[in-house]
Every structure is written in structure tokens, then in C-alpha cells.
Amino acid sequence: MIEETDISKEGLLTAYKNIVMERLFDKKMLNASRQGFLPFYIPLMGHEAIHIGLGMAIRDEDFFYPYYRDFGVLLQMGIPIDTILSQVFATATDNEIGRDMPDHFSLKKYNIGAVITPVAGHLTSATGIAYAKKYRKQNGSVITTFGDGATSTPDFHVAMNFAGVYNLPMVFFVENNQFAISVPTYPTKDKAFSNTYEETRGAIYKKADAYGFSGIRIDGTNFIEVYRATRKALESAENQPILIEAMSYRMGPHSTADDPNKYRTTTVIEGGDKDPLVVSQKLLKDMKILTDKDISSINDEMEETTSQLIDKYEKAPKPDKSTMMGNLYEEEPWYISEERSDIQ
């Protein structure tokens, strides 16, 4: 039976293709890092449904301030793939000319903020951007994403409080993947963690209460639920801020510098029934939008597309060293001009 839905069949299929594409890119980028093409990489597996649902929900009039694990959101938002991959591979054509780590995008012309490494360092900025929207009486809301670990920072609480006090058009979106590197988000009975502490004991979504607005918890493995809840939140945020906690699981390592076998038994595995890719396939098959045949042809198509792109960007030229001193200030100080000759 086809469920009543607010998204067209083509829309759902595009979303599914992007989920597959994100999964394949993820594997290939991890591989690229093992082969030395990427000095560092932030894996995505487990976040695909959140990313694609978010990308579907964000409207042209909204502003998106991502964190470092949001690759797929940009795919679904329709940011040119060359823009995305030139950043990840820090090539000469990257608009940041390779100055920041992979997935640290800055895309002002698409209403996207500048991803910052310090966890939660963007939350107060996002809130200030929401104030500018309100002050200029612009349509739309600001949505900012961050991890569960980020909710332990002062930045989270300060930004939530400011959003409440000034009643800002803000959606705070937590991608709860159950871990901040090795530390579990919540207390767990899992034996592996019997000898450690957790990030928090209070449900994250309930923390919004303390700041005078509401919080909800959603299934972050179901991209349609993520889309619907986020779109609704972006609309309602124009009247009051909101916090969304999307539940998923980080299926891979935290980063390429991390070995999760040291601290956990990975409970959500690829191809298992909690894998967002599998959940998406089941959803769309139940809706009679996707067949097993489609699944395999889409996979083949995406395999080819992603292979070609990764191949191209692995070999793309890096920025010239003469570019590295520019754009510290609008007017270059004398010592910067002098230090140009130190680059040898």
C-alpha cells in the first residue's frame, strides 16, 4: 500500500539515491585516507538518513550552520558535487583553497555557515545569525546541527538560552550517534562501558524545557521522519525555537584516527536492520516505490558515479604555496608581506 505522502515519488527516489551515494562516497573516502590521498577523514556511516532528511527539509530561505559530520546534507541540498569534493580533497579549486580539514565547508552563497572544529563552537554564531534574520524581518529559520557530545559544552547551553530569551527562529538539531568519540551519550548497561562515565544523565531533548521552548526526539534512521519533523520545525521556529534530538548510531570509527574496537562492541552493523540504508530500502519498498531490481541498478549507477569522482579528486592539483598567506586581513600587514619570502 502506498502511504499518503507529501513528497513525490521522484523526490523520494532522489533522496534514496543520495543515501546510496553518501554511503559509497563514505567507503571510498575512507579508502582514500588509507591510501594516503586524504590525511584525515570523518566517517558518515549511520548518519545518512539524518543527512538526507535534513537536506530535503531545508528551504531556500533557511540558513544552515553544519558541523563536521554533515557531508550528505550538502549532497541532498544540491550543492555542486565539485564544490563539495574540492573542499574534502583540499584542492586548488576549493573555495577555501585547502585551508581547513575535510568536511569543514564554508558556503556563504548557499546560506551555509563555516564549519568549525572546536565542538559546538558554531552554536552561538548560528544564534546570532538567527537574530540578524529576525532583525531584518527575513523569512525562514536558522538550523544548526551538532553531535550529542556537543550538548555538554557551555556553548550549547548559552546558545539555547540566548535563543529562548530573544525568541529566535532557531532549530537546534542534535545528531545523536550515541558517542562522543568513545564516551557514551547516556548511561548504558552494555558491559563494555561498566568502567566509565557518560556524557549526560538527562534526556537531551528535554533540556529545551529549561530554556523555555520545546524539544522532540525522532528516529534518525528514517529519512522521511527526519524530513517531516525538520520541515515542521523550520516552519514553527519562526514563532519559537525548537530542539530536535535525532537518534541514530555511529556505525564507523569517530575519525580515521580512531579505533572503536578499543572501547565498544559495534551493535549496529552494515546491512543490519538498524542500518539507515536498510531502513530506507524497507520504507520505500513498503511504499512500492522501490524494487530489489531498482536497488541493484541504483547501486551500480552510484558506484560508477562515485568512483569516477573520487578518482578525479584524488589526483586533482593542490593549492599553490603562494596562496597561503592571503586573506588574513583585508589590508595585509607589513610582516605578512615579509613572511611571504619565508615560504620555501
Partner: peptide, 25 residues
Amino acid sequence: ERVMDTPLAELGIVGFGIGMSMAGL
């Protein structure tokens, strides 16, 4: 709207101001 008393949080005062300036204020 232009002269804003803020909650007592220096991190917020600066971060919030950064956001405003990123957005053209």
C-alpha cells in the same frame, strides 16, 4: 533591538555578535 541587554555569558555575547556580523550586521 539595537541596544541589547544580554544574559550573563561572555561566550554568548561574543559568539552571538560573531553570528550577527556573519549575517551582514
